[in-house]
Simulated scan of single mutants.
Amino acid sequence: MKINQKGFTLIEMLLVLVIMMLICTIGISVGKKQLDRQLENRFIEQLKADIELTQALSFQYQGAASLYIFDAINEIHIYVPKYHKDNPIIIRKYPKNVEFRYYSTLDHVIFTENQTVSRSGTIIFSVNGRRVKLNVYLGEGRVKIVQ
């Protein structure tokens, strides 16, 4: 009595597993790059929104408001002296892969009681090796991002 068994050999199964692992590896690496890019863009937009929030707080409290970047502790602090004398009203941590450059002309943005920037300049930083310049202009606090 002869039994006819048909199925996959061990080599065929290993070949299928290797192909599946390659597809998964490529998918994960592409997904990670996309996730990193989204996190970078989210940080840049959040920094721009924080500068605009600082200007809005200056308008709301009819006094000076300031945003300081503390690179040593990876935090951004927003102060409104009229509201809280020495304590920041917002402390926001930013990712460790964000590196502010020492040759930036600004490490803080101050809005006067007239809601205008007290000093224009450039905040230069890199996110995962990608260099980003955030220009702050005099006037109504216009902010432009150059990548």
Rank of each mutant, 00 (worst) to 15 (best):
5 Q>N: 12
10 L>S: 08
70 F>P: 02
96 K>T: 11
134 L>F: 02
63 G>K: 01
70 F>L: 14
139 G>V: 10
115 Q>I: 14
119 R>G: 07
133 K>T: 09
75 E>A: 10
118 S>C: 09
30 V>G: 04
107 D>F: 13
95 P>H: 05
128 N>G: 13
54 T>K: 01
72 A>K: 15
117 V>R: 00
16 V>L: 09
141 G>Y: 02
102 Y>G: 12
74 N>H: 13
127 V>S: 08
1 M>I: 12
103 Y>A: 15
44 I>Y: 01
102 Y>H: 11
119 R>D: 06
13 M>D: 03
143 V>A: 05
49 A>I: 11
92 R>H: 07
8 F>V: 11
127 V>G: 04
66 S>C: 08
37 R>F: 13
87 N>A: 15
54 T>N: 01
21 M>C: 12
22 L>K: 05
64 A>K: 13
92 R>M: 07
83 Y>R: 15
143 V>L: 05
30 V>P: 01
30 V>D: 04
38 Q>G: 07
11 I>Q: 04
90 I>Q: 03
74 N>M: 07
77 H>R: 14
88 P>R: 05
47 L>D: 02
73 I>V: 15
90 I>L: 14
40 E>D: 14
136 V>R: 01
133 K>W: 04
121 G>N: 02
23 I>F: 08
127 V>D: 03
59 F>Q: 11
29 S>P: 04
134 L>D: 01
96 K>G: 11
56 A>I: 10
69 I>F: 01
12 E>H: 03
93 K>G: 10
74 N>K: 13
36 D>I: 11
11 I>V: 15
56 A>F: 06
33 K>G: 12
48 K>G: 05
23 I>H: 03
4 N>K: 14
138 L>K: 05
17 L>Q: 10
120 S>D: 07
50 D>K: 03
146 V>W: 02
47 L>F: 09
74 N>W: 03
60 Q>T: 12
41 N>L: 10
132 V>W: 00
76 I>D: 00
57 L>I: 13
30 V>F: 06
128 N>V: 10
121 G>D: 00
80 V>K: 00
75 E>T: 15
125 F>A: 03
108 H>C: 08
82 K>C: 09
123 I>L: 09
55 Q>S: 09
90 I>A: 08
130 R>Y: 11
110 I>R: 08
117 V>G: 00
65 A>R: 00
69 I>R: 00
100 F>T: 09
70 F>S: 09
9 T>V: 05
140 E>Y: 09
80 V>L: 00
40 E>C: 10
38 Q>W: 06
145 I>V: 15
37 R>P: 04
9 T>N: 02
17 L>H: 08
62 Q>T: 14
133 K>L: 09
49 A>Q: 10
120 S>R: 06
119 R>Q: 11
62 Q>I: 12
3 I>S: 09
77 H>E: 06
69 I>C: 00
32 K>S: 14
16 V>F: 06
55 Q>T: 06
24 C>G: 13
33 K>L: 13
71 D>I: 07
8 F>P: 04
33 K>Y: 10
142 R>F: 04
123 I>Q: 01
41 N>C: 06
9 T>K: 01
6 K>A: 12
75 E>R: 12
93 K>S: 14
39 L>V: 06
37 R>L: 15
